[in-house]
Write a protein that binds this DNA or RNA. Structure first.
Lengths: 212, 212
DNA sequence: CAGTATACTAAACGCTTGTTCAGTGCGCGG
DNA sequence: CCGCGCACTGAACAAGCGTTTAGTATACTG
C-alpha cells in the first residue's frame, strides 16, 4: 500500500498491540479507549495485552516511551540542520515543518503529541523544555550572525516563536477547517510558512499615524 | 451578567453542580470525573445531578454552553474596543489580554478552553470558527485603515494571529515555566505583549546577507 | 385543608471496565 | 517419549460506573 515501512503481517503481537494503542490513544485519548478496543484492532485477545504489558497503564507507559523516541528523532533532525541552510530558506527550525517531513500524512503521532500537552504529562513538559532550549539556542546563533533584529527580551521571544510553531500542531484540525488545507501537509505548510515568514521578516502592523 | 459576583452560598443547587463540574472537568477532563465526584464537591446527591441535567452528558453540554457564553463575553469585549484605541495601544485584540482581564487568576475557564480545543470538542470548533471570523474582520478593518501591511494570503494571516494568541492560553503552564511568569497575569502579559508587538510591528528576521 | 408539583435522597440495578484464572497448543532440550 | 516454558485464549470476576426507582420533605395552589 504505501509509504509505511512497517508491515502489519511481520509485526510481533507485542508491537501490533503497541501500534494499535498508539493510534487509538492519539485519536480518542486513553480514557476513551478500552483494552478490548485495542485487542480488537490488534487482532488479539484482551488477555494478551495484560500478558505483555502487565496492565493498561503499563501499555500506556510503553506507548509514551515509544512516542517520545519518535519525537526525539524528529527533534534531532532540527538540531542537525545547518544554520546557514536554514537562513537561506523560509522559517528556520520550524517544528511543524519537521513534523510534516518526519511523519507520514496519516500518522497518529502529531495527535499523540497534542494529548501529551493536554494532560500536563511530565513527558510533554520535558519535551517542551528541550525544544525551548533548542529554539533559544538557534535564535542566539542567528543573533550572532546578524540574521535577526535585536530583542529586548530574548527569553520571551524564543518562547513566542516556539509556541507559535507548536500551536500549528495543536490546532491543526481547526486551522485546516478555516484555511481549507491541512497545515501539516507539504502543500498546506508551504502556504502557511509563506505568510509566517512574511510577518517574521517584515512585520504586519504599521505604526499608527501621528496625531494632527 | 457578570460571573464575578457569584457567591457559593446563595447559589441554587443547579448552579453549584454546574460550577463544581466546570472546575473538575477543566482540571481532569470529563472522562476522569465521575458523577459522584461532582456530587461530593457540590454537596448534593449523585441522583440530583441526573434530576437536573438528565444525564452526565447533558451536564457536560450545559457546562459547555455556560463556558462558551463566558468565552464569548470575553471575546465580545475585544470587538467592542475601538479600533483606533486599539491601534494606539500594543497588540490589538489580544485574546490572552482579554482572558487576563476577564477571568480572575484562579478561574478554571482558561483550562476548560484548553480542553475544548485539544479534544476536538464540537463546542471548541464552533468557538474557534466564531473567533476566526472576528479576527479576520478585525484585520480587514485594520487593512482598510492602512494600519497593516498588505498580505498575500489574508485567510492564513488571520489564522496565524488567532492561533498565536490561543497558543498562549493552551501552553500557559509551559510558557510560565520557561519565562518565569504566568503569561495570563497582568505582569506576565505586559512582558509577553511587548515582545509580540515588537515582532508584529517590525519583524524579527533580517533578509539573509547576499553571498559573496 | 387536601392535592399536586418540585427539590432532593438512599439504595439498588445493569452494564462496562480492567483484570485474573485456568487452561490450550506448540516449540524445544533432553 | 517427557516436561518445561512461552504465546495465547475464553470465560469469569470484582469494582466502579451512569442511571433508575421508589421514596421523603417542602412549598405552592385552590
Amino acid at each position: 500500500m504505501g509509504l509505511s515501512f512497517e508491515r502489519e503481517d511481520d509485526l510481533t503481537a507485542r508491537a501490533s498491540i503497541r501500534n494499535a494503542a498508539l493510534a487509538l490513544f492519539a485519536q480518542r485519548g486513553s480514557d476513551r479507549v478500552t483494552v478490548r478496543d485495542i485487542a480488537a484492532d490488534a487482532g488479539v485477545s484482551p488477555a494478551l495485552i495484560l500478558h505483555h504489558f502487565g496492565s493498561k497503564d503499563g501499555l500506556r507507559a510503553a506507548v509514551d516511551e515509544h512516542a517520545a523516541q519518535a519525537f526525539d528523532a524528529v527533534f534531532a533532525s532540527l538540531e542537525g540542520t545547518d544554520l546557514v541552510d536554514a537562513l537561506s530558506g523560509a522559517n528556520p527550525g520550524s517544528i511543524a515543518e519537521a513534523f510534516a517531513r518526519g511523519f507520514p500524512p496519516g500518522s497518529p503521532l502529531p495527535a499523540y503529541l497534542r494529548r501529551l500537552f493536554l494532560t500536563n504529562d511530565p513527558a510533554g513538559s520535558a519535551l517542551f523544555g528541550r525544544w525551548y532550549a533548542a529554539t533559544a539556542d538557534m535564535l542566539a546563533a542567528m543573533d550572532r550572525l546578524g540574521a535577526t533584529t535585536p530583542s529586548h527580551d530574548p527569553v520571551v521571544r524564543a518562547a513566542f516563536f516556539l509556541v507559535n510553531d507548536l500551536a500549528l500542531v495543536l490546532l491543526r484540525n481547526q486551522v485546516a477547517t478555516v484555511i481549507g488545507a491541512d497545515p501539516l501537509t507539504p502543500a498546506g505548510l508551504t502556504r502557511w510558512g509563506a505568510e509566517v515568514t512574511s510577518v517574521y521578516a517584515e512585520g504586519a502592523f504599521r505604526a499608527p499615524p501621528k496625531e494632527g
